[in-house]
Amino acid sequence: MKSGSAESIEKELDALSDQELQAEAKKLKSFSLTNAVFIGFLAGIIFYSIAKSTWGLFTLIPLFFIYKLVNDPKNLRAKILDKVLQERNLK
Results as ranks from 00 to 15, higher is better:
residue 32 S to M: 11
residue 4 G to I: 08
residue 36 A to E: 12
residue 30 S to T: 15
residue 16 L to H: 00
residue 23 A to V: 08
residue 55 W to T: 04
residue 10 E to T: 01
residue 64 F to A: 15
residue 23 A to E: 15
residue 40 G to S: 15
residue 63 L to E: 05
residue 23 A to I: 09
residue 81 L to P: 05
residue 22 Q to T: 05
residue 20 E to H: 00
residue 55 W to C: 02
residue 85 L to Y: 05
residue 1 M to C: 07
residue 47 F to Q: 09
residue 39 I to E: 08
residue 32 S to R: 11
residue 87 E to N: 13
residue 39 I to C: 07
residue 84 V to D: 06
residue 21 L to P: 05
residue 15 A to S: 13
residue 44 G to L: 12
residue 40 G to R: 14
residue 30 S to C: 03
residue 37 V to H: 10
residue 30 S to Q: 14
residue 89 N to A: 08
residue 30 S to I: 13
residue 43 A to V: 14
residue 38 F to Q: 14
residue 27 K to H: 09
residue 61 I to P: 04
residue 82 D to E: 15
residue 24 E to C: 08
residue 53 S to T: 05
residue 87 E to P: 02
residue 62 P to L: 03
residue 75 N to C: 02
residue 34 T to H: 10
residue 55 W to Q: 00
residue 25 A to Q: 11
residue 64 F to T: 12
residue 66 I to C: 01
residue 48 Y to I: 08
residue 28 L to M: 09
residue 78 A to R: 11
residue 17 S to Q: 01
residue 49 S to K: 07
residue 72 D to Q: 12
residue 3 S to N: 15
residue 19 Q to F: 04
residue 65 F to H: 03
residue 70 V to K: 14
residue 78 A to K: 07
residue 69 L to M: 12
residue 4 G to E: 07
residue 29 K to S: 14
residue 39 I to Y: 04
residue 6 A to E: 11
residue 86 Q to A: 10
residue 62 P to I: 04
residue 45 I to M: 14
residue 6 A to R: 10
residue 36 A to W: 06
residue 46 I to Q: 06
residue 68 K to C: 03
residue 84 V to E: 07
residue 81 L to C: 06
residue 15 A to N: 04
